[in-house]
């Protein structure tokens, strides 16, 4: 409850700062010490908060009766499902990779550098590739749907923090715990299931938080670069085309993206609460 109130207060504060700068800042942007860093405050760059809010309730096109907020929410819902799916796939792959790396030193030494390198590949370069590979795949006569490429790209960004965080957690098991399991003559698998994985949970949860944000970015960017319709990424592009005439509408899509991020954060917070029930909270590493 207190958190919700704080959230609304912060939101109002952001709106107030926005309007304050808009009324005081230079119309055509400004320079500080010769650097052009002060944003312009004209309608195109910074529409009024009120205008953007009311635009949400206008119909999207004159012909159709659907209000913009409905279109944006539908886009959020579409992208949310892809992002959750991408996160689920990415987290599963990430945990599996971490377990493999923890089990086999060879895998760890061979794989870890490539995982780091994989994250430096620009998503925009990768997206058309994945889409075209997917288009050629027809496993068991089943056609690869276009949205699956978007999920794969979301998962591609999401798996990395999970695998690194989980690996760290698996290796942070106290030596005494491992010795105790050894005194029980427990197998590696039993030790993993009963000690190492549960002990890694406080490391996995913050990694999932990073992965959720990465999945959202991945999905939105992949929607744009694969031309996938229906999601928030597509709306940003579509509304961006007419932004010089209608900047408020572009910002409604940006709001949608923010809502998407917020919903993912809520999802992780709920999961955090669920898996950490009854546990003593340890300080999260930063």
């Amino acid at each position: 409850m207190r958190k919700a109130v704080l959230f609304l207060v912060a939101l109002a504060l952001v709106a107030a700062v926005w309007e304050l700068y808009k009324s005081l800042g230079p119309e055509a942007g400004g320079e500080v010490l010769g650097w052009k860093i002060m944003p312009r405050t004209n309608r195109n760059a910074m529409p009024h908060v009120w205008d953007m809010t009311t635009r949400l309730f206008d119909p999207e096109r004159r012909a159709s009766g659907r209000a913009i907020w409905r279109v944006v929410l539908a886009g959020v819902w579409y992208s949310l499902r892809l992002a959750v799916l991408g996160l689920a796939v990415g987290a599963t792959v990430g945990v599996l990779l971490a377990v493999l790396m923890a089990r086999f030193g060879v895998v760890r030494r061979g794989l870890l550098p490539y995982l780091v390198v994989s994250q430096t590949v620009p998503l925009i370069a990768l997206a058309p590739l994945v889409a075209s590979w997917g288009g050629r795949l027809q496993p068991f006569g089943w056609e690869w749907p276009k949205w699956l490429s978007v999920v794969v790209l979301g998962a591609f960004l999401a798996f990395f923090p999970v695998s690194v965080g989980t690996l760290r957690g698996l290796e942070a098991t106290p030596a005494t715990s491992l010795e105790l399991m050894r005194s029980y003559a427990a197998t590696w698998g039993e030790t993993l299931r009963k000690v190492r994985l549960p002990a890694a949970v406080p490391y996995i949860v913050p990694a999932l938080r990073l992965a959720a944000a990465a999945a959202v970015v991945g999905v939105v960017v992949a929607e744009i670069s694969t031309g996938q319709r229906g999601g928030i990424g597509r709306l940003v592009i579509e509304y961006g085309r007419t932004s010089s005439a209608d900047p408020e509408r572009l910002f409604t899509a940006v709001f949608g993206a923010a809502v998407l991020g917020l919903l993912m954060a809520l999802l992780i917070a709920g999961m955090d609460w669920f898996v950490m029930r009854g546990r003593q909270r340890v300080e999260e590493y930063s």
Binding site: P174, T176, S177, L180, Y184, A186, K194, P198, Q280
Partner: peptide
């Protein structure tokens, strides 16, 4: 054969298990 039981300076109990489930651990194995 788990012919011995062992206790260390640190109790080394697992946070994610209740007290009784901590005691059950060697029996699970």
């Amino acid at each position: 054969d788990q012919d011995y039981g062992m206790a260390f300076q640190q109790a080394g109990l697992f946070d994610w298990r209740t007290v009784v489930r901590n005691v059950e651990l060697p029996l699970e194995l």
